[in-house]
């Protein structure tokens, strides 16, 4: 998949999600919140599949160091998915769930993504790739 295709897939899923979110928040349609978040779940599944495969192949090459940035990314995506599921549960079924509990996986996801960007671990990744 080329860069353009990947960008357009991410773009179209995000655009669909934003449009559905606006419709749902304006109460023009009474969709289930899990339905509104379907584009985000599809995106997470796709990212998890690709990054998970890269981490798996990294672990299989035992002589070379595995790629920590991909592992951080996978953990970030898992945390983000957990946050989305908790948010849907809070909005649809569990009205008494505290927002701090709902947002805790989101904070963890942000910390993982930030580490993925900032920690200069790509030195090891580049070394293992070549």
């Amino acid at each position: 998949m080329t860069t353009l295709q990947m960008s357009l897939v991410i773009w179209s899923l995000c655009a669909t999600f934003i449009a559905m979110l606006a419709f749902r928040l304006d109460e023009k349609h009474h969709w289930n919140w899990f339905g509104v978040f379907i584009p985000m779940f599809i995106l997470d599944l796709k990212l998890l599949a690709i990054a998970g495969y890269e981490v798996y192949t990294g672990f299989r090459r035992q002589l070379e160091p595995t790629c920590p940035r991909e592992s951080l990314f996978v953990l970030g995506v898992i945390s983000k998915t957990t946050f989305q599921i908790l948010l849907c549960l809070r909005l649809e079924y569990l009205a008494n769930l505290p927002w701090t509990v709902v947002l805790a996986p989101f904070w963890i996801a942000i910390i993982f993504f930030q580490a993925n960007i900032l920690v200069p671990l790509n030195y090891f990744c580049d070394g293992s790739a070549e």
Partner: peptide
């Protein structure tokens, strides 16, 4: 990007406290 993420982290923490 990192700056935006830090702002989101702080904002979401404060927003959660406000919503609770």
């Amino acid at each position: 990007l990192s700056l935006l993420m830090s702002a989101t982290l702080i904002f979401s923490f404060l927003a959660a406290l406000k919503l609770d």
